[in-house]
Design a protein around this nucleic acid. Structure first.
Length: 311
DNA sequence: CCCGTAATAT
DNA sequence: CATATTACGG
């Protein structure tokens, strides 16, 4: 009886087969706009199927509409199987999915700094993204993170000194969020209002000093200690043993290049690491690719990180 | 268009 | 679970 079923789906499969022409444009639409831009392949003509010469050097964004001059060096490569499939360049279009972005404390710090310097008002995803100048960061990444971050801030304000300052009063869901957000030097002085940004005014300059949030930092500090540990390993390490620290621990090595701390908008995020696995030679391994293998599933994550490792 | 939010998906 | 993605109003 299996045969019948088999021939059945096969028949349907055959019928549904789209023509090659139809597939071409489809593969394009699968490319993230950002990436498409980065690769300069916005044109409806990707590349000839015959030509297997994939990208090599990518030019940065030609001209950002903003005042930001960040033709940051672009250093990204698609992850690829080590096996010499060869047609990786083409595959890029088809299988292009960015690995999940990992918000490391450093990256988050940059995020927070950016928001702090911009002021609540100007701290919108696009602006933040630009100020951060982290290569490979997309607006969506920031937006998503910003959303969570705002919720976190709100929670903090509403909490004040309600019941007890003990960490036990937090719900599990909250705790998780706290960890990331608390695990960095929170320059929380902005919370209440936005800043005045008139025409001709530079976006950054203001710092407010709302009276609240003070003990929270204590609690946060406590949590932070724990956070640092739990951060990368998550409760994934079911049994207590030495946290493996991974063969290629990331936090161990950072390539802080000549990029100053943010606050100066003229920084070119040159040397920022974003990356997917670079199959062939990536001189500075400034990015981190982490592979979690589960039962038959592998999950790649992007660990791009900021310049300046000041803390 | 872009942003903010909530719901939903991976 | 932490992010991503989507949907929808503003």
């Amino acid at each position: 009886m299996i045969e019948e079923e088999e021939s059945n789906w096969f028949a349907r499969w055959e019928e549904e087969l789209p023509s090659p022409e139809e597939l071409m444009p489809l593969s394009q639409s699968l490319i993230t706009p950002d990436l498409a831009l980065a690769f300069d392949i916005t044109s409806p003509n990707p590349n000839p199927p015959a030509g297997l010469h994939h990208h090599h050097c990518i030019t940065a964004n030609q001209h950002p509409p903003q005042t930001l001059p960040p033709p940051s060096d672009f250093e990204s490569a698609e992850y690829s199987g080590p096996a010499g499939t060869g047609s990786v360049g083409d595959e890029t279009a088809r299988t292009l999915k960015r690995p999940r972005l990992v918000w490391t404390p450093q990256l988050h710090k940059r995020f927070v700094d950016a928001v702090a310097h911009l002021g609540i008002k100007n701290a919108v995803p696009k602006t933040i993204m630009q100020l951060m100048s982290v290569d490979g960061l997309t607006r969506e990444n920031v937006a998503s993170h910003l959303q969570k971050y705002r919720l976190y801030l709100k929670r903090m304000q509403g909490l004040s000194s309600s019941a007890s300052t003990s960490p036990c009063s937090m719900s599990a869901a909250d705790a998780a969020t706290e960890q990331l957000f608390a695990s960095n030097p929170i320059p929380h002085p902005f919370l209440a209002r936005g800043a005045a940004a008139g025409p001709g005014k530079e976006p950054f300059m203001q710092f407010m000093s709302p009276p609240l949030l003070q003990h929270h930092q204590q609690m946060a500090a406590a949590a932070a200690a724990v956070a640092q540990q739990q951060f990368y390993h998550q409760r994934q390490m079911g049994h207590f043993g030495l946290p493996v620290t991974a063969g290629g621990g990331y936090d161990a090595e950072f390539h802080a290049r000549g990029a100053p701390h943010i606050g100066v908008n003229r920084m070119g995020a040159s040397g920022l690491g974003i990356g997917y696995a670079s199959p062939s030679a990536a001189p500075p391994k400034s990015y981190g690719e982490d592979v979690h293998s589960g039962s038959g599933g592998e999950r790649r994550v992007l660990t791009l990180f900021p310049t300046s490792s000041e803390d």
